[in-house]
Design a protein around this nucleic acid. Structure first.
Lengths: 277, 277
DNA sequence: TAACTTCTGTAACAGTAGTTCCACAAACGA
DNA sequence: TCGTTTGTGGAACTACTGTTACAGAAGTTA
């Protein structure tokens, strides 16, 4: 027919799709283009709609029959395999306007890649190794918009190893929570700009007790950096009202993944217990 | 059947193949596996043999029917698209050990870009518009590993507009929290795999009360999708123990950014108040 | 709330695909 | 060279898949 990919056609329709049609579209885009190469019944089952809806959907895309649609998918797949450097799932042939979401996510993605250049691989590895050792207690804390990161990391680390303690942000209670800190204990602190004075206090205390601080921060570096033994900065700048904390979560997930690998003996049992709960 | 690829099976037969069978084999291997996904007649034409030969060839490979053979090819293709997750944009300048963090973040970045293709721009925009309207109450809830996302979104939305309510996960209390829900109210639910039954319950209740559900989920779609008016799926698959939830946070941040823009009159005052606090 | 419009799934239909049979052609052995 | 065996393609057959019509459900508007 014409040079448009099926995926592009789907995005062109977009608004014109009905509820069930949209489910079909999602199903296809979800595992593209394989679901479309299956028989109608299977496609329908996979997208949780009826076969009739699939046929209507395909007709709406501009194909005169289902086999016709499948042929287009196959040809598309053939083209793609011919030019191996076909990156990005969004071909540049997109018409006019730049979709807000694509642009935003692409920017976040770029920040994420830049972050890899910002952090020394060796430092990252060392931090993960220290986390995988179960001998020392590990403390976690975050500020106003980063506390949830501490929570996320805590939830996963608890599955992987014992000896995890999370500090809540209130200065009054944090003092109590820090009494047990021993020299050589690990503390992971999150602090991004509009840096939190309470976090700095905690860092001071930890430093005085000779804990080893791992700081996860932004490219401008929290004042805590002076007390930190390890420092993992992320590129968060967006030029908008809010910074990109998704990059921090990306780093956290990388840590979780690496620590899971390193402590797999311990972790696998514990995770297994979770699955069977 | 078994784990062998079709290509491997062909090589196993090899000697046992007849002249025409070999032509079929050559044709298939020539543009693998696309020719096998075509109808028999086309496969036959492409390999320059008769349709009957193709059927015999497929039977020889150990498949009990042609559709069965095609299913195997599709599954194989699916597997193949899952495995090259490791192909990081590894800069060649790095000697020695593989930079784990770079590879990981590159993968996350890639998932983020793919997510843009998965979500319809119009749907995203519509959801943001609805969020920027301050007339309706907006409810938020998340599951085990996604509750923090609801929390993050809540914290920001509260700054932008009034009428935000977060539901906690406990079934006992969630019922109480839902009594005030009015038809047309918005509810943003997070649910990723190992889908949370409690979330489904909440979705049921919301659906019964005619709330409009916005579902943020993974590419396999939570069962809540059936009740959702808007559905925003993210690519989270990593092939590792844990999925990539950073992508979800990326989406959430995009929503926050867009809603901030749309409701700037209201938002700027409120944010100003925060700065000066 | 009620009438209207639009959408969606079920079930019957029709067409096309995959399958099988049979006759012929080719290769091999006597 | 002839008979036998094996491989191959054409054509009829069958079964399944894609299609379509219809009725009920859902959503929308007054």
């Amino acid at each position: 027919m014409d040079g448009k990919t099926v995926a592009a056609r789907i995005h062109d329709l977009d608004e014109q799709l009905t509820a069930a049609g949209r489910r079909a579209a999602r199903g296809l885009l979800g595992n593209y283009p394989l679901l479309g190469l299956a028989p109608v019944a299977e496609f329908a089952a996979g997208a949780d709609v009826s076969a009739a809806t699939i046929v209507r959907f395909v007709a709406q895309l501009g194909f005169k029959s289902y086999p016709d649609f499948q042929r287009a998918l196959r040809e598309e797949l053939e083209e793609r395999s011919k030019s191996p450097l076909q990156r990005g799932t969004t071909p540049p042939g997109h018409s006019g306007e730049a979709p807000y979401l694509s642009a935003f996510l692409a920017q976040s993605a770029r920040r994420m890649e830049e972050t890899a250049a910002l952090i020394s691989p060796g430092e990252f590895e060392t931090v993960c190794r220290r986390l995988a050792e179960t001998k020392r207690t590990c403390y976690l804390a975050g500020g106003r918009f980063t506390d949830f990161l501490a929570g996320y990391l805590e939830a996963h680390l608890r599955l992987i190893r014992p000896g995890i303690r999370r500090l809540d942000g209130r200065p009054a209670t944090s003092a109590d929570q820090l009494i047990d800190v021993k020299p050589g204990d690990l503390a992971i602190l999150f602090d991004v700009r509009r840096y939190d004075p309470a976090m700095l206090d905690i860092a001071h205390t930890l430093s005085r007790r000779k804990a080893h601080i791992v700081l996860i921060t932004d490219e401008w570096l929290s004042p805590i950096a002076r007390h930190a033994r390890y420092c993992l900065p992320c590129r968060t700048e967006t030029g908008r009202t809010w910074d990109a904390n998704a990059v921090l979560l990306g780093l956290v997930e990388a840590m979780i993944a690496r620590v899971t690998e390193l402590g797999w003996e311990t972790a696998s049992e514990r995770i297994g217990a979770l699955e069977g709960e």
